[in-house]
Design a protein around this nucleic acid. Sequence first.
DNA 1: GTGGTCTAGACCACG
DNA 2: GTGGTCTAGACCACT
Lengths: 136, 136, 136, 136
Amino acid sequence: MPQVAPFIITVATGDSRSIARQIVDAIRLRISTGELRVDDKLPSVRGLAQQLGVNPNTVSKAYAQLTAEGWLCARAGLGLFVAEARDQLNGHERERRLSLAVDRFVSEVVAIRYPPEAAVEKVAGALESLNLRNSA
Amino acid sequence: MPQVAPFIITVATGDSRSIARQIVDAIRLRISTGELRVDDKLPSVRGLAQQLGVNPNTVSKAYAQLTAEGWLCARAGLGLFVAEARDQLNGHERERRLSLAVDRFVSEVVAIRYPPEAAVEKVAGALESLNLRNSA
Amino acid sequence: MPQVAPFIITVATGDSRSIARQIVDAIRLRISTGELRVDDKLPSVRGLAQQLGVNPNTVSKAYAQLTAEGWLCARAGLGLFVAEARDQLNGHERERRLSLAVDRFVSEVVAIRYPPEAAVEKVAGALESLNLRNSA
Amino acid sequence: MPQVAPFIITVATGDSRSIARQIVDAIRLRISTGELRVDDKLPSVRGLAQQLGVNPNTVSKAYAQLTAEGWLCARAGLGLFVAEARDQLNGHERERRLSLAVDRFVSEVVAIRYPPEAAVEKVAGALESLNLRNSA
DNA sequence: GTGGTCTAGACCACG
DNA sequence: GTGGTCTAGACCACT
């Protein structure tokens, strides 16, 4: 049954990501870990905006992006709900985006001269601790 | 003897990183892999700008950042040269920056529903293939 | 609560430091003395530029450096704020940079034949009068 | 009697000062410590340039500055010699230049969050170890 | 020739 | 409105 999910997000002022981006990332993460499940109802734009102390337009933009990406779907008059998992990206596009992400990460490891093996360990640990679902 | 390094950089429009940032990352990478060695001379600001088809100020900005980070040093009137490697950051800062990088990478893996184990493999492969030197 | 800090900076033409450098030094000083506090909002790039009669890019460059050094943090669309103090440099680098500063100062004392003891007094007086905080 | 002073200067590539500035500083220091004495003869422009591996124009410029400042004096056809100590700057100008130097030093101490007392100690130690003469 | 700095004006994403 | 980035062109000091 559709339920309003109890929902905890925080926006960090020290984060270089935009507020909308932080919201998007947080919701994607919660869906991927199963903390939010298919058909769960999301808080209203105004409600979440008030809870986070941000501009409603910002929340609205984040919801719009998640909807466009297929993570959420709108049911007219009822609100936004977690959508069924479906892969939007084809193989090439997914590989290209991962490749960019890998390059970015490697660049930072190089920039701070972090030991490569330890860096890989950190990534592996972070991903394992999430217990992701729905991965292709 | 100082040598002018043969030098191949390309700037990709599909990359979300700024042009200056791409230049910075590319040069740091070449220094870290040993492709550029201490006392090697870098291409002139104007020369590299022309080669890449970008504004000299953009290259200058990238060079300035690398100099501030201790990767390069300027010799007045002669040009820029690869400096001796030295770590500037303390342990806490290094861990903090790696942590941010890990979070960013994980966010992207989640966003594109990439299989976590495969993602870790890609990172490990990318780092190993570099044969980095001078990592603490 | 974030507050817009009342803010007085002047740029001196007789100073050999670049305008951007003067701005950087002045803001670091105000943060270190507690005149600017964590979460205080800084004047906008355009506003400070107009106030000082310099190009906005010059102010932007100064702000960018302070952000890179961890003194400020940007909140997208809102402006720049004083960040929590954090040391980035390790011991060796800090000693190295102080040593360079000492050498530069000594060179100037020698150049103008200033009495050494009096010069030390001036430095001591200047540092004491600041009542610096957060020094390691 | 005028003698050619045995003379050891090195130019450091990692130094942010220009080469000419390094030469000027080094010679002023040697005169101030008594390592070079009044009427000592300096190496020729070409000789010093060759010894340092730099452009003769650079040495020439350094010598010219030192002569303008009154540290050296030219004897036609004989070469350059250390001049009698005389103060060129009036009190106000000397105080102004020291003040700028103090500000620069303080700025660096603030920038790297170096403990103020320890910084003063370093300056005092550096100046004492020189055993300066000829100070007004 | 080299890099460093400043000005001027433009476009973008964000809130 | 905010900062971030890039372009264009200029002047300076240094070698």
